[in-house]
Amino acid sequence: MNIFRFAGDMTHLASVLVLLLKIHTIKSCAGVSLKTQELYAIVFATRYLDIFTDFISLYNTFMKLVFLGSSFSIVWYMRSHKIVRRSYDKDQDTFRHYFLIVPCLLLAMIINEKFTFREVLWTFSLFLEAVAILPQLVLLQRTRNIDNLTGQYIFLLGAYRAFYIFNWIYRYFTEPHYVHWIPWIAGLLQTLLYGDFFYYYFHSWKNNKKLQLPA
């Protein structure tokens, strides 16, 4: 464990807590893409298949349970909670996220470190996570301005993978033979997708005005 990875995990944890807090306290999911939340639930379900077979550490197992629990409960809130579901804008959240799942699955069948069930699904989860934010960013552009909590959620979600990139650089230089191109490239692409959001988020914060992405 290194400071970059710990910072990344804490930032990731903060992002899901901000979203859960928003949905649970104000009972609203306005501006939040259910498609992105469903993709993240799939990401965690396919990445943590080893949660009961490979014990790494209490921290690792605890965090996996938190991410699995939070992502599935957010999906449940947005789909089934009688009050929250009313604030879900399904007419705007129209990104065909199944067009993301199939290509990621096919790509994972081709590009992976070992062609086994678990390894292919693990690789699939990395590719899917890289693009999972797209429905949310599209929804953001459609609904124009967004509330602060949703903006903070997206910012933290993007920042966590940026911390992971520093973690991979650190591990590359400190651990011999630590080379994993697949998460590195997927993680870099994921962080780049947040590029313009970070740009507008920073400027709205600097000029202290409402966050608005260009149409």
């Binding site: 990731h12 080893d50 490979d54 790494i56 690792n60 996996k64 991410f67 973690n167 033979h177 998460p183």
Partner: peptide, 10 residues
């Protein structure tokens, strides 16, 4: 890299 190595990252 040892492909079978444990996935210690989240």
């Amino acid at each position: 890299a040892a492909a079978g190595e444990l996935k210690d990252e989240l």
